[in-house]
Structures are given as structure tokens and as C-alpha cells.
Write a protein that binds this DNA or RNA. Sequence first.
RNA 1: GUCUCCUUCGUCUAGUGGUUAGGACAACGGGUUUUCAUCCCGUCAACAGGGGUUCGACUCCCCUAGGAGAUGCCA
Length: 490
Amino acid sequence: MSVRVRYAPSPTGLQHIGGVRTALFNYFFARAMGGAFILRIEDTDRERYDPRALQDIYDTFDWLGISWDEGPRAGGRFGPYFQSERTELYRQYAEELVESGQGYYCFCTSERLEKLRESQAAKGQGYDRHCRDIPPEEARARRAKGEACVVRLKIPLEGSTSFYDHLIGTIERANRDINPDPVLLKSDGFPTYHLANVIDDHFMEITHILRAQEWIPSGPLHILLYDAFGWKPPEYCHLPMVMGEDGQKLSKRHGSTSLVEFRSGGYLPEAIINYVSLLGWSYDDSRQMFSKADLEKLFTLEKLNKAAAVFDYKKLEWFNGVYIRERSDGALQAELMPFLQRAGIAGTPASAEEEKLLFDALPIIKERLRFLTDAPEMVRFLFKDVPAYTAEELLPKKMGAEETAKILTEVKSLMFPADGKNFFDKTDEENEAAFRALAERLGTKLGSVLGPLRVAVTGSRVSPPLFESIRLVGKDKTAARIEAALRLLA
RNA sequence: GUCUCCUUCGUCUAGUGGUUAGGACAACGGGUUUUCAUCCCGUCAACAGGGGUUCGACUCCCCUAGGAGAUGCCA
């Protein structure tokens, strides 16, 4: 039987890096096994439902380049793939459980449950099974009269339930330790996660469940449900969790966690995919570069790690730099332009000159980028005026304004001589030789000659390579900027 | 509190009874270099603790400690 796996997000918030990791592992497992990857929307929480979250699911996976074989937009013969459109099915099976005596109607109000939770908080019990023994006829009658109720599962009081986890092995739990009689069908008629999940996984013929380890505690409960329906449970593989640097579950306070944040923060999808794949999974003792295509072939459950992994932004950052450098200039330009526009460096739409300027600048900024968001400030001096700088910044180490002005004046006449070839007519080698000769004549280092020039032309002591930058800035602007620097020193 | 899972460098990890415990990121040092970056070289750095089993344990078993997760009409 061929593998069928699913990613089943709840559209209540933005796609989170942890969820995406789970989705990716499911996707890669399906591809590597020649199986199917299904997307199912678990929109059973009407309170927290957010249509923007649904859009975010699509956007996130489109951006990552992950597609599903069945699900919303894709269709499939096991649809609908929105749980909100399958409520009749859940109701029917919940009813069946009540009929067979494996479930029961519970009329407890949320107020009572709240109070119960508070009073038992210290003991950590849970539901007191208050309605478990109401005679079926009476319960049916009360429900028929319109009394609000939920359907709960009767957890056996004795015995234990176990299941096999592909990664961890056999996990067993005494039935008395399972949360007493969880709600399967809410009073609004919608199912809870447990019911909908089990029913859908069964009818969608899911063969493997790859989900985070935080679900381990509900494993036995799900097994009990499969048993109650007389169904065969799928195989389980609980994935190690992703933690923040403090060892706690990764959350907002650790930094960016949603994919939209990573995207707007200038991360590349290749970097995210590569990095995240190495969180709880490895290939061998040395390889760490993996493309999506690689993972679609190489991924196996056998190489999964058991322990939770700490999310390391520094390493992701490194991957990001690597993938930025790996991009072709054309592809990178397309990726970068929106960031320049957002920063107000380039127009919207960008002019042909702006497009060309960015493209021409790529060779000198590419290896300096860690994030796409680094680009605007890096190329600002090419598109706009030089950012304001102080006379102080112009001065090389241990040099005064007067001396610096002298150097800069010499530099200017070297670059733009009254007669002979100017800077732009000569090769970089020729220019470098000339600057070196100048430095020697002035009895100083090359850096002290180029330093002031760098600040004058780029507005900063740190910039892309000077000669290339000057060529991109152009003759007139360069000359004008040197003049401006000279005025500042005077 | 109770239940469950986990435990190799700071971080991600390799390792399945005999290794100088390997790689990557980070950090630090050095080289290349007109700044920054890239690139190259190097250094620091780990088997949580205690018992067993065994000729021999990072590897197998037990205990302890620590960490995490679950304990909802959220998923």
C-alpha cells in the first residue's frame, strides 16, 4: 500500500516555523516514498477561525514551493478537505459512539467545568465524569428537549492503552491516566480535534501520522477511538519539537517565528527549507547542504532524531547568506527589487535605469548580503544622494582635517586630471597602481588615501569595493561628491 | 501535583561494544584584501551523574538528576 500522509493546520494564526517543519517532513516523506501528500484544513474552532490564516497557509507553501496532491485548490477523491464541510460525518460517528455505549451526552456547563478545574487544580484531575452514568433514556430525553450538551468518550477505567511509535517505540499509558472522558463533539455541533482527526485520517486513508511530540499524550486516546470504531490506526511517528534558545517551546518572544516574518525579513525559502530540515533530521556525518529536490529523494524516518532541537537563528542566517550567493544575478535582482522599493530606494514600478543599476551592483554586494533586507542600505549611495556623514568620518586614523583635505585634493586631481586619462578611462589595475604611487609620494598608506575617497563617494567607511562603486556612481556624481567632502573639511 | 517523552561540544548533529568521539554554525586566532564581506587555514569545545552487564562501554539495563510536553467544548 502506498504512503499517504497529511499536514492538517488549523487556520487560527500565521504559519509557524514549527508547523512548517512538520509539513515539510510529511511532504518529503511522501515524495521519497512515492506517496501522496495531503493538505487538510482543520477549521473546527469557530471562535478562533481567521480567513487570513487560511490565505497565509496558501501563501506560505506557495512561497516555499511546496504543493499538495490532495486538498484545497488541488481537489482529490477524499474531499472535502475542510473539516467545517464534514460536520455531518463527525456528528454521525459521535452519535454511533453514544449508541454503542462507548460515548455519552454530557450536560455540564462550562461554568461548572471551570469551577471543577479550579477546585481540582492542585490535584490535577480533570473531568469528574459527572454525566457518565446518566441513564441513556434520560440523557436522550434531556437532549430532545433542547438541553445543550456535548458528546464525551468513555475512557475505560481499567487497563492500559499502547501504540507503537516509529521513532520512540512502544508507548503505553494506563487508562486511568488518560484525561477522563474527553469531549468529542462540542455543544455547537462541531467536533473537537480528536474526533475529526481520527475520522478524517481513517476515511482519507492516511497511512502515517508525522506530527510533533507534543501530541504523544493524546496518542492513547486516539487509539481508543480507532478501537471504538473498529478501525485500524495508522502508523505513528512523533517528531521532535522545536524550541527557542531558552529551551522553551519556540514562540514570538524568541524572534521571528511565522513564515511571513521570515519572508519580509529577507530570508530565502531555500535557506528555510535546508535549515529546518536539519532540525531533528540528518543525512550523514558531514553533509548539510540540501535542496528541496535532494530532500524529496533522501528523506527517511530512520535518520530522525528523538531529542528536541533548539532553533538557531545564527545558523539559519549562515544558510541564508550561502543561498543568496548561490542565486543567479537575474533571480537575485528580481528578489531584491521589492525590498529596495519598500525602502524607498527605487520607484514603484522601478525604472529601467534602476533595474539596470541594481543588476550591475549585484556582483559587488552579493557576497556581502546575509539577508535580502541588507541590500537597500548597501546600494543607497548608488540610487540616492550620499547619506549624511561627519567630517570626522572622513579622517583616516591619526590624521587631521587639513591633512585629509590635502590627500583628497590630490586624489581628485589624480582621478580627474586636466589632461590625460581620467579614472573612468583606466583599468582597475592602472588605477590601483596610480593610487599606490600617490600614497607613496604622500608618505602614507593606500588605505589612508582610499579611505576619505570611500566616505566621500559612498557616505560610509564600510562599503562595497570602491573602484566598482565609483564606476557605478559615475563621473559627474563622483566629482561632485569629492567636492562636497572637501567643503566639509574646509 | 499527575502522566509521558527526552539527555554527545554554546547550538544543530554523526556515532548502534573496541574511534585521537567526526562534521557544521557560533566564538576566538591567523592568512588573502583599498573598508566590509567572501574565501582559506587553525584553535577552543561534548558523551548529565551513579550503579550494573561485559575482557571492554557514548553505545545495553537500572536508578537519580535535569529539561520539555500534556493535563481545554484550542489544535
